[in-house]
């Protein structure tokens, strides 16, 4: 009996260690951003895909826009503006792994927003971008 439960505990522990940090769907991620934005933005009016598209494609005072690396067509394979390394498409319709791993999303928003805007993005901006990317077929 005891042995069995020990084995179970070990298997469970191994299973937990193997599991990738919490897979979610892009819709879950959008919903989480929504409640974050509602909490932190006075008079929050919801997300806008067209605002997200503009945000994605224009420069914000620095050398790069989001599309400098992710291209004007988020369903296409991108290319790192400095190193030329290919980047898998960023639109969930073209790449099922996108916007499913909250840790990875946060890590790249932090890095890329700092490169493009010299600051982190607000929940409103992140939600607008994701709303836009979800409209890309």
């Amino acid at each position: 009996m005891l042995r069995i439960s020990c084995v179970t505990v070990l298997l469970l522990a191994a299973g937990l260690a193997v599991q990738p940090a919490y897979a979610e769907s892009p819709k879950d991620v959008l919903a989480a951003l929504q409640s974050e934005a509602a909490r932190s933005t006075p008079d929050f009016q919801g997300f806008s895909a067209s605002r997200g598209e503009t945000f994605f494609k224009v420069k914000h005072g620095n050398e790069w826009s989001c599309s400098s690396c992710h291209t004007e067509n988020p369903a296409a394979t991108g290319k790192h503006a400095k190193t030329d390394k290919p980047i898998e498409p960023i639109a969930p319709s073209a790449n099922a792994e996108r916007f499913t791993n909250p840790k990875k999303i946060e890590k790249w928003f932090k890095r890329n927003c700092n490169d493009v805007l010299d600051r982190i993005c607000t929940p409103q901006e992140k939600g607008d971008v994701l709303a836009y990317l979800l409209t890309v077929r």
């Binding site: 400095k82 890590k107 932090k110 890095r111 890329n112 700092n114 490169d115």
Partner: peptide
């Protein structure tokens, strides 16, 4: 890593 050759590569 936060100022990595003109790029932000910060890590946990």
């Amino acid at each position: 890593l936060d100022k990595h050759f003109g790029s932000n590569a910060s890590l946990d």
